[in-house]
């Protein structure tokens, strides 16, 4: 199963959701797989921060569906967030973990999930996220997207994907700071709120 194909399936289901996503090659893949979600996606380079940030966003906007696109390396960097989600039970957070069993962006050395013992979905269930599953086919992944986007409880799917990157895709040119401004202005416009307002004086 290719991550890019999973992304196109997920993207086809999204309209006014907000997305926080992880670092590495998945950034450019999501940028291309979901062009209509570019302003609604926060592209960050923050190992271990993705699902916690998505949960913070979900806590602040409880009426809005939030999607975390995390990774095996990123989730294992901070497994504690699974226990926090288990206790807090957010009703509007759908978490996808792209599990390619390697640190792809630095050339592919294995992560802990590569050896057949570590099961992130099982860890999540043990942490109190009852709806935590592993998808190995596009059809399974797509079905979990449908269920996860409609769930009233935290929902997590680990997508077992190949360690390859979609070839010949356009690179995103903006950095984390520009991405934040784009995202914040999108949240402001769609929520009718001010997050980064004017100074007292010009």
């Amino acid at each position: 199963m290719k991550r890019y194909d999973c992304m196109t399936r997920l993207a086809a289901r999204l309209r006014d959701e907000l997305v926080i996503l992880s670092l590495g090659a998945s950034v450019d893949e999501w940028y291309n797989a979901a062009p209509h979600m570019r302003a609604a996606s926060l592209f960050q380079q923050q190992l271990g921060c993705v699902t916690p940030q998505a949960f913070g966003l979900a806590a602040g906007l409880p009426h809005r569906r939030i999607i975390s696109l995390d990774t095996d390396g990123g989730m294992m960097f901070n497994l504690g967030i699974l226990a926090t989600l288990g206790n807090e039970q957010p009703k509007n957070l759908f978490t996808v973990v792209w599990d390619n069993e390697c640190y792809q962006s630095i050339g592919g050395p294995p992560t802990h999930t590569a050896f057949g013992r570590v099961d992130i979905a099982a860890i999540a269930r043990g942490a109190g996220i009852d709806h935590a599953y592993t998808a190995r086919t596009l059809e399974e992944f797509d079905a979990h997207c449908a269920a996860g986007l409609a769930a009233e409880v935290p929902y997590l799917v680990v997508a077992k994907v190949a360690g390859t990157v979609q070839p010949d895709i356009r690179r995103k040119h903006s950095d984390g700071r520009e991405d934040k401004y784009i995202f914040v202005r999108h949240v402001e416009a769609t929520e009718g709120i001010v997050i980064m307002g004017p100074s007292e004086h010009n």
Partner: peptide
């Protein structure tokens, strides 16, 4: 929100900032 470590708490606070 009770967290498992303060780094997780910092990241959650960052997400809250993005919500307004």
């Amino acid at each position: 929100i009770r967290v498992t470590n303060e780094g997780e708490g910092a990241a959650i606070c960052g997400g809250v900032f993005l919500s307004g």
